[in-house]
Amino acid sequence: MTDARLDVLAAYVRVAPEPILPAPIFSRGVLAWTRANLFSSWISGALTLVSLALCLWLVPPLIAWATIDAVWSAPDGALCRAHQDGACWAFIAQKMDYFRYGSYPQTERWRVDLTEIVGAALVVWLLWPRAPRRAIGAALFFIAFPILAFILLRGSDWFDLPIVDTVLWGGIFVSLLTALVGIVFSLPLGVLLALGRRSHLPVVKLASVIYIEFVRGVPFITVLFMANFMLPLFLPEGWAPDRLLRPLVGTVLFAAAYMAEEVRGGLQSINKGQFEGAMALGLNFWRMMGLVILPQALTLVIPGIVNTFIGLFKDTTLVSVVGLLDFLATVENAFKDTVWIGPTIAPTGYAFAALFYFVFCFAMSRYQAYMERRLGRGRRR
């Protein structure tokens, strides 16, 4: 090959790399996410446009009703009756103490506040994955805190705290108490029922199946009425359980049946080799379950467990049918105040109640998603 031909070929040989060009605009950033999630097909695009139109139609009036046109301060319902285009948040502000404490004596409400602060601190301690000495926090929460809460809320002559009958308890702290007791005690009871349903002992298995299927086959209200009226029949004569204890027991028994099925689903998803490996190490049944099987099973069914917790938290509104004055019952009782009569009072009260339940349920769902991602890292490929 002659030098002239080599010069011609050299003109077509790249001697420097091409500059790196940015990705196409529709494959990165906000536009890429919008195209992939909102306009991936003509059906997706149509639904996006319809949803956007509904939001533009409904959201601005709702925001105006809740903020711009709302009544924020008023001594009674007269101003709210005069301005019927917006919410009456003055009603919520005036009744907030009743919503929080019910008829709990005003001079003793610091006991409720102290109980809630201690309980919230312990819950954060337990739920924070990087918190130090969580075993101590668990011991305080499950052993010391119930005793402290009972003494503070009900009172004790030993500590010079006046006795406050549970008839006066009500509002938000009763709803939180009912949900907390149901969540804390239904999970271990559900685990035992799930293990009992998988047991090789016919009597244990039959008893667990009958209990789970019976409770799951009746409405929650039925369980509450049975706990309220039938529980005293199974106790010694002359010992009547407290009116608050009865629905708490019914709530735990009802939620445990659903929790058992969630846990059983997790147990069935565990590979048989995990059981064989644990037995090959010489672990007995309870150590095998506690150290090997249950940690994996509960991790797999975190969404179902939290979903049951969320349903339980919302179902606490039903305890009012057996005489407990929960948060929603206090809201409805506040409507009867003749000073606060108006067409916007009830919508405002129910909007406030919906916001309260949404905040707690959304927080539980977000924490569930966080823990699911954190505990599922080892299973990702």
Rank of each mutant, 00 (worst) to 15 (best):
A194E: 01
A121G: 10
V184L: 08
W169D: 01
P146T: 05
F185A: 02
R154P: 01
L176S: 10
V123E: 05
V124D: 05
G190F: 11
A194L: 14
A179T: 09
F141Y: 14
L148F: 13
V118A: 14
S156M: 05
I147F: 08
A139S: 10
L140M: 11
R154Q: 06
D157A: 07
L168Y: 14
A144I: 02
L127I: 06
L180K: 09
V164I: 15
S186T: 09
V167D: 08
P132Y: 13
A138S: 12
V164Q: 03
F185C: 09
F173C: 13
V124K: 12
L176Q: 09
F159G: 05
D157G: 03
V174Q: 00
L180N: 01
A139G: 13
L122A: 10
L161S: 04
W169M: 11
F185G: 01
W158D: 00
V167T: 09
L148C: 03
G119L: 00
A194Y: 03
I151R: 07
P146Q: 13
S186P: 12
V174I: 07
F141W: 14
A179E: 09
D165Y: 13
L176G: 11
L176A: 12
A194Q: 04
R130K: 05
P188S: 10
F142R: 08
G137T: 01
V118P: 06
V167P: 02
I117S: 00
A194M: 04
V167Q: 12
L122W: 11
S175H: 01
V167I: 11
I143L: 15
I183K: 08
I117A: 05
I183A: 15
L192C: 02
D157R: 00
A144W: 02
A149C: 11
F150T: 06
V118F: 06
A139T: 12
G182W: 03
V167C: 06
L140S: 04
D160K: 04
L152G: 08
D165P: 01
A149W: 08
D160H: 07
I136T: 15
D160L: 14
G182R: 04
P132L: 15
G171N: 08
A149I: 12
L189D: 11
D165C: 11
D160A: 06
P162A: 10
V184K: 12
G119W: 00
L168M: 15
L153M: 00
G170W: 09
G119C: 06
I172N: 05
